[in-house]
């Protein structure tokens, strides 16, 4: 038997972990080898000393003391837990009984605000730059960039820093035909966003330029934009220009409706004159005016504040009959 194996078996023998057969085997081995037997005795002696060194068992007093301390701690903790649990139950009960509707309404409202904010609020393109970003700042403001909306905060009394907010706008030049999609998009943007009426008129008249082209395709988006401008633009000159351009589109129900809208609702008599002239032109070009047009013309012939409109309306109706 190998020495290490013998030592392990001897340990297990003395620790009462060997089976009956293993014990017999070990005893037989020792009987045949005095050296192993002597080593076994050494181990046995060591084990006895080690076992004798067993620390004292905890006294009854220590046990009682430990129990008392434990139960105090456990009770303190269970009281603490039950207090919070009771509080949570009470709050839940109170809320459920009295404010269910209000809370669900409030939750829906808050959720609605959050959803709207996420969906509708455009993401800011604002860049916040630090002194170490100076290169980026210089890049963003170099050449012909236009600086506007400059706001300067009060200097910080501690470190003397100031915060400057501004818009840096870089002009872009783009050259293309009038019917180029990008040009049309820019013209429409100008028509609806420019504060200056002159710029809006310029946009509409530029749109009209495309009618000079031989291969002009009627654009539905432009048409709708012109109708919208004709109905809503605050400046009569812009509306007039939109009406002139719309007259170049093929006559249809949408054109008819917007002409009747102008005739009925536009407070500017010049616009009403322009609208009734457009209807006159249509009649002279062979278009039959339907009942809706005739009804409006009847009203205008009887009651429009502008005599020209009255006379023209009556005249068209007479010719139509």
């Amino acid at each position: 038997m190998k020495w290490d194996k013998f030592i392990e078996l001897a340990y297990l023998f003395l620790l009462d972990e060997l089976s009956f057969d293993e014990r017999i085997e070990l005893e037989n081995v020792m009987m045949q080898d005095d050296e192993l037997k002597s080593e076994f005795e050494n181990i046995k002696e060591s084990f006895e000393i080690l076992k004798e060194s067993k620390p004292q068992v905890a006294s009854e007093r220590i046990l009682v003391n430990a129990r008392q301390t434990l139960m105090r701690q456990v009770r303190a903790e269970s009281v603490r837990v039950s207090f919070f649990r009771k509080l949570a139950i009470d709050v839940r009960k109170y809320v459920y009984e009295n404010y269910t509707l209000a809370i669900s309404g409030l939750v829906t409202f808050v959720l609605g605000i959050i959803v709207c904010y996420i969906l509708l609020i455009p993401k800011s393109n604002k860049q916040i730059l630090q002194p170490e970003d100076r290169a980026r700042l210089e890049q963003a403001t170099k050449d012909d960039v236009k600086i506007s909306n400059l706001q300067i905060s009060q200097p910080d009394s501690k470190n003397g820093e100031v915060e400057v907010k501004f818009d840096a706008v870089k002009p872009i030049q783009y050259k293309a035909k009038v019917d180029d999609p990008a040009i049309q998009k820019l013209l429409l943007a100008s028509l609806f966003n420019e504060d200056n009426p002159g710029a809006r008129i310029k946009s509409v008249s530029t749109i009209a330029q495309q009618f000079k082209g031989k291969e002009f395709k009627y654009d539905l988006q432009i048409k709708n934009a012109l109708i919208k401008a004709l109905k809503t633009d605050s400046n009569p000159a812009v509306r007039k220009e939109a009406l002139v351009v719309l007259n170049k589109y093929p006559y249809d129900e949408e054109i008819r409706d917007v002409l009747l809208y102008v005739l009925s609702n536009d407070r500017n008599s010049g616009m009403r004159v322009a609208a009734i002239n457009a209807l006159t032109d249509l009649q002279q070009n062979g278009h039959t005016l339907d009942e809706a047009v005739k009804n409006v013309l009847t009203k205008k012939a009887e009651a429009d504040k502008n005599d020209y409109v009255k006379i023209r309306a009556a005249s068209i109706l007479q010719e139509e009959n």
Partner: peptide
């Protein structure tokens, strides 16, 4: 408690 007492050989540690 006995395991703790044997392991640490100290009443205070065992507690």
């Amino acid at each position: 408690l006995n395991i703790a007492r044997s392991f640490r050989n100290s009443d205070e540690d065992a507690k």
